[in-house]
């Protein structure tokens, strides 16, 4: 990385040097709607940072702001040591940005798309051949290099888009829902690629609607109504929600759901295949009550046990807390 001329001492300076994306009070308005509302985000070098949040929370807007695609209404943002409000163009060589929607040229072939972006990113001609070959095999697209982009499958399109954003070997990657609409196998492959990049030292900021993907990140930020409401490592988020989880396996889950929703201490009931997940204030305390109640109602169950909350439950719990707070 070459973005800093850092020679300062002290732990504070070291931390600042390590920060590659930083926003302070970042805000963006669309007409009369404030989409991003005082967002404070810090991403350090080498992190695989997952940005999660409900639809419309401002994930895409945040990424577009960081890529210099949208004008900042208020606050400040620094990417790769450059102030986005003052020199958005200077940021561009240092980032790779992948849009949520397929944004490559459908009528061009895989190779032509790669080549086009390599030229826009000023990749030297002598490096271009080797780099495109490597990216093609990295993304598993070598057999399809002369196929038109419009004829690729959804997963391959995403991988091609990623390859195009990697062509100039950017130290920072901004990926907007790179796996949405992709089959599970391709999703896994895609994440393997991301992990490899992360291991190679690239800083990655990725948004995702999939909670299992958030679990694969080193740092997770939860964005809600344009604000960052929680930012920590995945385990810390899961542990820090202040609620516990009970898993109930039953054949009569519809009936059980109605019953469980009215029980004291249960804040949320979620269906999960043939089992129900109950968010409760304290699992061990509530287990006997639930057991009694199920027997009273004559609902047979295969198992009932306390379990560790997953990212999904943590997410729902956090969002609900936030909503409750807002209503109050």
């Amino acid at each position: 990385m070459n973005e800093e001329n850092g020679n300062g001492g002290g732990p504070a300076a070291a931390e600042r040097r390590d920060t590659v994306i930083e926003t302070r009070g970042l805000a963006r308005d669309f007409k009369d709607l404030r989409a991003i509302d005082g967002l404070d985000l810090t991403v350090r070098r080498g992190e695989l940072f997952g940005l999660i949040g409900p639809d419309g929370a401002g994930k895409t807007t945040t990424l577009r702001l960081l890529a210099g695609l949208l004008k900042i209404t208020d606050g400040s943002a620094t990417v790769a040591g450059r102030d986005l409000t003052r020199e958005p163009e200077a940021v561009k060589p240092h980032i790779g940005y992948m849009a949520q929607r397929f944004s490559l040229y459908a009528e061009l072939t895989v190779m032509e798309n790669l080549r086009f972006f390599s030229e826009l990113y000023d990749v030297l001609p002598r490096e271009r051949g080797e780099r495109t070959d490597r990216l093609l095999s990295f993304a598993g697209l070598t057999p399809f290099k002369s196929r038109r982009a419009e004829h690729l499958s959804g997963g391959m399109k995403k991988k091609l888009a990623l390859a195009c954003t990697l062509i100039h070997q950017p130290p920072i990657l901004l990926l907007d829902e790179p796996t949405t609409g992709v089959d599970p196998v391709s999703r896994r492959e895609f994440w393997d690629i991301l992990t490899e990049l992360y291991t190679g030292g690239t800083t990655i900021l990725v948004t995702t609607p999939y909670m299992d993907e958030a679990d694969r990140c080193t740092q997770v930020g939860l964005i809600y109504q344009g604000q960052l409401i929680r930012c920590a490592a995945p385990e810390a988020i899961r542990a820090g929600i202040g609620e516990e989880l009970i898993e109930l396996q039953t054949d009569q889950w519809r009936k059980a759901q109605v019953v469980a929703e009215d029980l004291p201490g249960v804040s949320q009931v979620m269906t999960y295949g043939d089992s129900l997940h109950l968010l409760v204030d304290a699992a061990e305390e509530r287990l006997p009550d639930i057991e009694t109640r199920l027997e009273e109602e004559g609902i047979p169950y295969r198992s009932l046990r306390a379990t560790r909350p997953r990212m999904e439950e943590a997410f729902i719990s956090l969002v609900r807390d936030r909503e409750r707070e807002r209503l109050r």
Binding site: A67, G68, L69, E89, K92, P93, I95, Y97, M98, A99, R101, F102, S103, L104, Y105, A106, F117, L120, Y121, D122, A161, C164
Partner: peptide, 13 residues
């Protein structure tokens, strides 16, 4: 319309 501009705008062109 096709969104292809988005990917070009993030390049240094």
């Amino acid at each position: 319309e096709h969104g292809t501009l988005e990917q070009v705008l993030v390049t240094p062109i």
